Amino acid sequence: MINVIWFGILFIGIAFGVLTGDGELLSKTIVSTTSDTVKLIIELLGMMCLWCGVMKIAERSGLTDKLARLLKPILRRIFKEAGKDDKALGAIVMNLTANMFGLSNAATPFGIRAMEEMDRINGHKDVASNDMVLFLVLNAACIQFVPTTVVSIRAAFNSGNPGSIILPALCTTTFASILGIILCKFLQRYF
């Protein structure tokens, strides 16, 4: 459905540009926009490589393992069923740890594995369990220690201080995560 919506937006925009006599401006804009997009992707690629390297250093130094050990007791209390299953809890911890460091690409396989493991222990295969819903909320609102993507985009656009987003991101994602847990626990009583 989203493809139809995007096609409609593009078609209407192009048709409007041609009908108003701005076809030349439209074609120049398309060319310059695609060029700018390629430049941005190349700049982001460099920044993402840097942050992935930093994450590898954090992983090899044991920082991510320490964070995972710190999270496990907390997550055992939050997740009723998945907290009792080491495979499910391990995948949840790895996903949230990668997300906390802003590495959503690295977190995705762990998120998929966590959902598969929680589905394995789910008694109702056609309905998401409360733990699955809570994990989805935590995954979407995950606490961000280093929002690497946002910092990379700000750096690519020559921000004076790309890292100034770190503290506000930490505060808002922490609040969103806590609120998400509270709302999930409250709504679990009724659904």
Rank of each mutant, 00 (worst) to 15 (best):
G160D: 08
R77W: 10
L50E: 02
S159H: 04
L75K: 07
N95R: 01
M48S: 06
L45V: 13
L45A: 14
N139K: 10
A91R: 03
L96G: 00
L134T: 15
L71I: 02
T148Y: 01
A82F: 02
A156T: 08
F145G: 08
P162T: 11
M100H: 00
T172D: 10
D65Q: 14
I165D: 01
D86S: 14
S159E: 03
A82T: 06
P73V: 12
F110A: 15
T64E: 03
L136H: 07
G102C: 04
L71N: 07
G46I: 10
N130H: 09
R76G: 04
C52W: 06
A68G: 08
E116R: 12
N158S: 12
A155Y: 05
F110W: 08
E116T: 13
S104R: 01
E81A: 14
P73G: 12
V146F: 05
H124Y: 05
A107Y: 02
T148H: 03
L67P: 06
G62E: 03
S61F: 07
L103Q: 00
L96T: 00
L103G: 00
E117T: 12
V127E: 15
A106L: 13
A98L: 00
V133G: 06
I74Q: 11
K87I: 14
L45P: 02
G62P: 01
I78G: 04
A128T: 07
V137M: 12
L63A: 13
R154C: 10
R77P: 04
R60K: 14
V133T: 15
Q144F: 02
L75F: 13
D119E: 15
A68H: 05
A98M: 04
G163V: 15
F101P: 00
